[in-house]
Design a protein around this nucleic acid. Structure first.
Lengths: 222, 222, 222, 222
DNA sequence: TATGAATGAGGTTTCATTCAT
DNA sequence: CATGAATGAAACCTCATTCAT
């Protein structure tokens, strides 16, 4: 049969890069995280991501299916990363108040230092969590923060420094809200009220207020 | 598909509409607000806005220049509206604690009831406040909340129920953060932590926590 | 307000062609018919259609929504055209046998002369009629052929030249099958059996056979 | 260079599969036949074929060169198969009329039962037989049907039941046309004329008409 | 031989915006 | 003022094919 002699419709120079699927995935994911965080889902450009990657646009679709799949992967990685970091926070050996202070401070610092993550979360909220809903991975993440907070609250209550009836999820919500706002609403708030929200001093000041606010809330008065 | 019916459409039906520039503007702004709040700046579609408007796309460009101009106008209107509503809040005759409670409750309720506004603010923050920066109108708005809070704090401090050193802008930030989060981060938070954040009970419960959190922060202990 | 001074993101030279919606539509449809008939739905290229059109690719989407919408419009036009031509066939004054001969001959000639139409029908069958199913227009076409055939059969039966029990739809199917095959299966049949199917003589010969085949089928034997 | 260093994931699981070139070819051809018949040449997806095959995409190219080569192989197999089946039809011992009836009935039944084959033929006709032209195998197939028909016609003419001048290829064309149409044009015809063409009853009815039509054509009248 | 990774070309579609009437 | 027609740029995505290991 003359199969091999058949004219080939496609003949192009092929530049092949070393095959390293994990590396390629990581590379794409890293750039995509930046692009999505910076421009939102709709503002992000697949072409721009591809251009900054070490691979081609095609690979992006090869690995992630479509723009949405890529965004979901970005979200998953971001959430997995923060969960991992949270899990590393060691509060053993700290009394409840100190533990809570540490955790809040940690949250505040982490969020202040990770604007891209915050932005991804905002963006996902604008999209009403539809991508998160489509991700099985994220929803299966268990959140050690909640358990930590529960433990802290329990211990604090037992030794009489914290009030009764503090729900750890409520508490987490308060912590998140206060830490989040500083990053998420920076642009409008600082502009409208002429207040610096990014300098080291401003952050330190706000950090103290946030910690103090929450501590006062949970503390049992004599 | 109504392709075949298009032919007839050429014989244009002449609908004599009363010329009402202000009405037209308002109409466009209303629809645009919905579209931008729902889809973000990049997700919003000029065509969709025009289609739902009682005028044509041309008018949209005629009145607002371009998509960005329209978005800015939407932002301006939204901020003006909230400022106006804030200004109507009458706290005279209330002692500092009650006044603060009222104001926080009001903020919480307003934000809970005005998701589109919250979303516009989020969206503008994603865009790093660039449109707000381009609007002279918004930045000239003075914020009566700050003055109200300053007044409340002063009175509270004078009569010894509030602590010293409470900065009204810090306080406003805390209030905003706590009220905002409930609306802004609903989608992700409620999904991740399996917590209802929209029911009347959930709102009431959270509202109390928010008020309590802030009151405890400002209150002077004996 | 400085709306008008705002920088325009898009400023391009605009070459506008005379507005003639009907003409534009017709133009697109004509080219698209050729492209689809020649290459099938999947083989057809929107770019190619646009390039041969007097308008741009954009207009194609403006008028027909997407490739599928365009294909449906092409089908609709093709079917409408043949129905119209069928309707023009005047058989009054012909006795049943002559009328039937005329109609078959007409069908044979029409199909032989309109390969693109035949190809569109084949293509649509390959797609299992899914586009036709989506077109309300086509399905509402009534087929005068059937009525003509019914009339011919009735008259023939009454005057005793045709058999009883000839169903006009069955008859139409036979006519179609015999006329269609010659065009539709030309490529494979003529190649496999080494038989010319396109020359004037071949067509004339086949035409006679087809007519004779059907006439014999309906004719009542003494 | 550590770029080249493989990750663990790359230590490939070695699945020892029995090497069975013929089996692999058959497997690929079977799946490819389905895919091409279902979607046409342009609609068929190499990836889809590969995915459903028990081998990889590489093998597909290894065995068949390219998509076109695969399609040709599919066509070849399909034609070879039908030729083989035709050859098995035994008409010895039947008088000309019975023999012809049997052959037509057989053709009708075979085509009704083998839609994929019919579709491949249609598809190839849409491509104007270019693949068939490239296949030496198919064109070398001799068609026993023609010989059978010639024999039947001769016998029939000799014993005075069939007319003179019936060309076997013409006759085969008529048979094919009538049998083919029912399968090939099912989608459009049944939809346009609201007629069932797939039920057992409808098929039986049509089968009779087809046989009767042809028999009447060849039969010599007293 | 077998497999997943990689590729470039080109496919369809969308968008904000502007023109002609 | 008002409306439908028109536009170009660029967006996302797909495909057959080939390479590296």
């Amino acid at each position: 049969m003359d199969i091999w002699r058949r004219r080939k419709a496609h003949r192009r120079r092929v530049v092949v890069r070393p095959q390293d699927p994990e590396g390629t995935r990581r590379d794409i994911l890293k750039i995509a995280t930046e692009e999505f965080a910076e421009n939102g889902f709709n503002g992000a450009r697949v072409d721009r991501i591809a251009a900054r990657t070490h691979t081609s646009k095609r690979m992006l679709y090869y690995y992630f299916g479509d723009k949405e799949g890529l965004f979901i992967a970005v979200l998953e990685q971001a959430y997995a990363r923060i969960r991992k970091i949270e899990a590393e926070l060691d509060l053993t050996g700290l009394d409840p108040k100190a533990a809570l202070r540490t955790m809040i401070g940690f949250t505040f610092d982490f969020q202040s230092a990770n604007e891209p993550f915050i932005r991804l979360v905002i963006i996902e909220n604008i999209h009403r969590g539809e991508h998160l809903a489509r991700s099985t991975t994220i929803q299966q993440l268990n959140w050690p923060v909640i358990e930590s907070l529960r433990d802290i609250c329990d211990r604090g209550r037992r030794i009489g420094v914290f009030r009764d009836g503090i729900d750890p999820i409520d508490l987490h919500m308060t912590i998140s809200a206060l830490c989040f706002f500083n990053v998420a609403n920076r642009a409008t708030f600082s502009r409208l009220f002429k207040r610096d929200m990014t300098s080291a001093e401003a952050l330190a000041r706000r950090r103290d207020i946030v910690i103090e606010t929450i501590l006062r809330y949970v503390t049992k008065r004599r």
